[in-house]
Design a protein around this nucleic acid. Sequence first.
RNA 1: GCGUCUUUAACUCAGCUGGAUAGAGUAGCUGCCUUCUAAGCAGCAAGCCACAGGUUCGAAUCCUGUAAGACGCGCCA
Length: 580
Amino acid sequence: MITDILAEKVTAAFKAAGYDITANVTLSDRPDLCQFQCNNAFAAAKAYRKAPFIVAEETAKVLSADPMFKSVEGVKPGFVNITLTDEAIAAFADEIASDENAGVPVEKSEVIVMDYGGPNVAKPLHIGHLRSAIIGQSLKLIARRMGKTVHSDIHLGDWGLQIGLVIAELSERMPQYSCFGDYHEGDALPELTADMLNEVYPTASGRSKTDEAFAAKAHAATVALQERRPGYIALWNEIMRVSCGDLRANYDALGVDFDYWYGESDADAYIPELMDILDRKGLSYESDGAIVVDVAEESDKAPIPPVIVRKSDGSSIYATTDLATLIQRQRDFAPDKVWYVVDNRQEQHFTQVFRCARKAGIVPDGTGLEFLGFGTMNGTDGKPYKTREGGVMRLSDLISQVVTAARERMDEQGRTAEAERDENARRIGMAAIKFGDLINHRSKDYIFDIDKFLSAEGKTGVYILYTVSRINSILRRASESGAPTEGKMTVSSDSERDLMLALITSGQSWKMALSERAPSYICEDVYQLAAAFSRFYHDVRILDEEDEAKRTSRLALCSLTRNVITAHLDALGIKTVETM
RNA sequence: GCGUCUUUAACUCAGCUGGAUAGAGUAGCUGCCUUCUAAGCAGCAAGCCACAGGUUCGAAUCCUGUAAGACGCGCCA
């Protein structure tokens, strides 16, 4: 990467000037003065008790012999200001153009297990599930593109109280079925549909809060299910079948996928082993009828309560299945890292689970267990997003609303062939939603504003797709006329230089995105790339440039820009369109 | 009550390990379509970086306190 190469050169220059210090080179904060800057002369000055300006000047003097630089200056308080020659910039751009990975930096290989999605079966996917899905998917794609091996697991919520609630509710609605009583294999089961389940769960959940007898029944059903009572297991299989089909359709529409559709229930087989380990190591003990493990540490500012691994009614709880799942993951994948993309509000729960896992030796010390929390999606009023009627919005409704709006806009434009409009509208709508979400830092709450995301003016997914479709249009015309779209690049205008600079420095956003586990850096960078292209597009002529070498260079630049932008969009889970 | 996070332009947000005149997008105001998609581009205006102290040659950034808001605090996930 360009900044790494520059950092090496500046470090060597520091050394040549007599300062043993590692340089860091960044894009300049003052583009009017230079392209890149290095601030480490301040540190060197401190270490060697000299004036920063002197250090900067001495270092700059060493560097100015390098033909790669148009100018290197030691400036005022102590900055080293660097400007590359146009030839060097174009050469770097050529290099990326011939790079298979489009300039995306590759880092050391690691095995990462990712846990995102986390939908509950028998519960409709609503917009609360959106963030986990699209942030998780994006982080997975970023990590893979940068050389990591990622195993993704949806981790269904399919073994807890929520199932007990559904069973209890169904048993009252249709008591005639034997699955609630003396079940024999082959007996008829209730006919379930996704819509029905989507209604049953909220009803049951609401009832359990006011109706104590019903709540007790749901708890009992949960215990019985986990003890594998045949009728409940049969019904559970049916619930799973119907619900997973519905979930799959929803995730497909989102363009989000998982390598494994494991759930809490798959961890069930590892629970005896877990309980045995905790018992053998003397970590677990009985408290108020439940079995718990202390996880408090001396350095805690606030007391962290013990983690409950078995409820007083004998059933397991999410901490149990999360721990048991770790045993499973260690056995199946021996991961270097496990990433949990879950709601911020679950932080304490995961602190407990991670500590317990470490104390119990379920994962080796070197394994990184990471809680990657995300913030809440709020409405324009700043409160958790609701429908106009005040309910929780279904994910499918949200998507169709956005896609319909995109389709209307496309009909107005009339540039896209009729046959492609539905698919393109879906892509534009999804780009609007995903970009609008991912541009915000993962960990922060953000305001979900459909009109803003679709407005296509400014920093939106629609703007990026629009830019790509313009590039596509040019490249399409070029290939029709037989003009070459590959070749050596040269700089013949400011806007070309700026675009090339944006392209050759865009690897930095990947590094940030991966190290922070936050796709927002890729979003910001791809916007910068698109904006730089738009300026270039307005500034110079491309197809009808008379000078053939310039024309070829510009077409090659278009082609490179498309490839780099597409690499970014791929990592965000956003598909481009040919026309819009 | 305790803990975590947030507070930067009218609105929504960037500002990486402290460094040069605090940056974007939106909204507002001006321009630009007989030339490759105007879902675009160029420009103007807009900020005691919540408040008060401290550390430093230098603080939006680090430390302490105050205020406002969000979230969490044993048998839901």
